[in-house]
Design a protein around this nucleic acid. Sequence first.
DNA 1: TTGAAAGCGCTAACAT
DNA 2: ATGTTAGCGCTTTCAA
Lengths: 338, 338
Amino acid sequence: MTIHSNPTVDDVAKLAGVSTATVSRCLNNPEKVLVATRKKVQVAVDELGYTPNFGGRYLASNRSRTMGAVIPTIENAIFARGIQAFQEVLANSGITLLISTSGYDPQLEFENIQALVSQGAEGLLLIGTARPKKTYEFLKLRNIPHIIAWNHRRNREHLYVGFDNHFAMRELTNTVLNMGHYRIAIIAGPTVNNDRIADRLSGAQDAIKKATGASLIIKFSHSNSSPILAGQAFEELMALEIRPTVIMCSNDALAVGAIMRARDMGINVPDDISITGFDDIDVAEIVTPSLTTVHVPHRRMGQAAAELLLSIRAGKTDQKSIKLETRVVLRHSLQTKK
Amino acid sequence: MTIHSNPTVDDVAKLAGVSTATVSRCLNNPEKVLVATRKKVQVAVDELGYTPNFGGRYLASNRSRTMGAVIPTIENAIFARGIQAFQEVLANSGITLLISTSGYDPQLEFENIQALVSQGAEGLLLIGTARPKKTYEFLKLRNIPHIIAWNHRRNREHLYVGFDNHFAMRELTNTVLNMGHYRIAIIAGPTVNNDRIADRLSGAQDAIKKATGASLIIKFSHSNSSPILAGQAFEELMALEIRPTVIMCSNDALAVGAIMRARDMGINVPDDISITGFDDIDVAEIVTPSLTTVHVPHRRMGQAAAELLLSIRAGKTDQKSIKLETRVVLRHSLQTKK
DNA sequence: TTGAAAGCGCTAACAT
DNA sequence: ATGTTAGCGCTTTCAA
């Protein structure tokens, strides 16, 4: 493959016998050009396989028609659905979405944000609230519209499109308590740089504190996405002298890991022990027993975030945060304590 | 939020008391600048929150440091893992990945490709071989390095980094035949614009044709990703007078749908009927019974594709296609015919 | 309705 | 080692 010199407006203009300004108009404001002229230009465009150079366009117009999203990882059903919806809404408005992944690393997230801004991102979708001050300072300094998703806060410093992780987990915990479980264990992934998990944990603790006679053991796992490690944590909890009667996991992936390890160990879920998850991803219904969990409206979250960013881009800067409702989904992995 | 005038090289240069060329060098070839000067510039950069404008950079250097990928959908475990690996390798070389989704629509794929090229994509990752001539013509006209993944062809017209869907499915079918199954049914998603599925189907047919006494029924489902529709197809197959003894599904998502419907119908898998999948995504191990399927090395595929594109970008244009090996993974959903 | 020309922010060749 | 300057492809006044 040789180094290619791509066709430019000049090439198109020459071939069509018009000026570069007219070519530009045909592409951006076709109604300002005679139909006949437009046709000539279209023929030239097709013949050359011309596509406008984004760099030139961005430079001249100062609009990139681009938004960015930085997510921890694509390889996780938790984000996939919301991002897909986010992208679909943007695409309908002719906006390109740039996605990058930070692997849960705040420094890498910062660099990715900078890269996206360099690429001209007119707005950003970020996951959760936990990030260093310098990242927020950068966003403020450069005045980048941004949405924080997958969680919610009351303050007006940022725009949130998410749900209340603390409240949702408290509710699930109350459900568990109401079903007669008092020896409760939690398997949780790291809470460092992960406010969603931290909030879920504190939500559970909140509910348990208020319930007389309830006890809690927390087992930390080194990953929020490794079913294997969750399985190990499960095994350790099962080795305790006094076993818990229910294990609440900080998300569905960990819960599935626990269920699978239970099967391997010959422990019956939910007869011997109940298990719960969080997120309601596809596998929650597929696993046996099906998983009691918290349903999160991922698609609506992605859509709402996109619509908010589009509104801001259109000049409506007085936007408000959106809090979405979650709900506990009762399935077979949680059973009333006999 | 007001319209922001972002800091430019000029601003940085002025603040640091150097020329724009020096600022540029600090960013791109720091070794050509005295450490002291570099420090001054860094201070100015930090103070202004400067990030180089991508448009200007791309325009001046004719390199975008950007690659593109067009995939059918993010919301599907089949692509997520490979794309994640693809992105990680690119990120290590400072390349930004732009991802867009076509929803299995060839026209939309074409438009997405054009958009990515406009954005300056220096290379593209595409899924499968099935696309209209005009798409290939555009790629050729503009001389865009591109890799076709998730499938393989012998020709030298394009670069393939994938596996042989036909061969893999034939192998799985032979395994099924060797286990004594002769009444075989297939649940397959659409093969239009989906060469992977078409190849799998022909691979199965190939094996069955060569086996004396074997019969095949094909049931088409309207989606390659809907377990629900696959469940319906399963039900229809179960309503046949002479039931098949095994149902091979064109991918794991459909196989999981079939297994779940079997459970709902009180049909035991694999005692009453065997089921197989294709892809070996996470759920294959999670579902009960665990799924016999074809393992595809998704991560390696993504990595290899990225490395190939990087090599081409580095000027090594004599690259060759890469064919990856798949293997049949025997689990519990397939049983020897008694 | 169309054209001429300036200028967006940056890099790279050349000059010092 | 650093500075000067032309020019990348496009949009957008302004003029005709």
